[in-house]
């Protein structure tokens, strides 16, 4: 087993822990009544920094920890039953989001435009899973599902998407340097 492989395994676990703690980090913003929960910022960062495979793995481990019963889902919830609840679609959407963001952003020439596109696609994918699931499981109409499960969060998502791109520019060199220097 390559050292780089183990290193990325540990990094993916680190990101899973960050996503889990993100459920408890709330930053109030002036534009919207709903405070930003930093959780999907870390999901986006996992995709951007680790790439599709390891980003997906890190969200997968986070979902596994939540399924086992640790209180790591948004609002401190946990347990297998939440996958079937009204917010279960967003949980699966996180995994898809990390994968899609990772596959768009991960290439030999990374630039800001590509990162921005990746983050936007990631946000769209999260809602593409979350809103239909909310509609079906809570048997709402489309408009109501959009109003309850998407529109209030969009200002926060804009802030998070911008922060993800900014943070990625700062953190990517740090991560790449660690991977290159420590590997034998």
């Amino acid at each position: 087993m390559l050292f780089k492989d183990i290193q990325l395994t540990v990094y993916a676990s680190l990101f899973a822990a960050l996503i889990a703690l993100g459920a408890y980090l709330a930053v109030p913003i002036p534009i919207s009544p709903v405070p930003i929960i930093l959780q999907n910022l870390f999901v986006l960062l996992a995709g951007l920094l680790l790439g599709p495979r390891w980003g997906f793995a890190s969200v997968g481990i986070y979902l596994f920890a939540g399924a086992v019963g640790l209180p790591v889902f948004t609002g401190g919830k946990g347990g297998l039953a939440h996958f079937l609840g009204p917010t279960g679609g967003y949980l699966l959407g996180f995994a898809a989001c990390a994968f899609v963001t990772g596959s768009i952003a991960h290439s030999t020439d990374t630039n800001r435009v590509r990162d921005t596109l990746a983050v936007l696609a990631g946000v769209v994918i999260t809602y593409a899973f979350g809103v239909p699931w909310l509609k079906i499981s809570a048997s709402m109409s489309w408009e109501k599902a959009l109003f309850a499960g998407m529109l209030p969060f969009l200002p926060g998502d804009a802030v998070k998407a911008v922060s993800a791109v900014i943070l990625c520019r700062t953190l990517r060199p740090v991560l790449l340097r660690r991977i290159q220097t420590v590997a034998p």
Binding site: Q7, V10, L14, L25, L175, R178, V182
Partner: peptide
């Protein structure tokens, strides 16, 4: 500014925990 607040919290935490993560990886190997 929420951007600055996020940045001054996350970047140092990330850097420091990345160092610890490398320790873990080395310990495993």
């Amino acid at each position: 500014n929420p951007f600055t607040r996020i940045k001054v919290l996350i970047v140092p935490v990330f850097r420091r925990s990345l160092l610890r993560a490398d320790d873990f990886a080395l310990a495993l190997v």
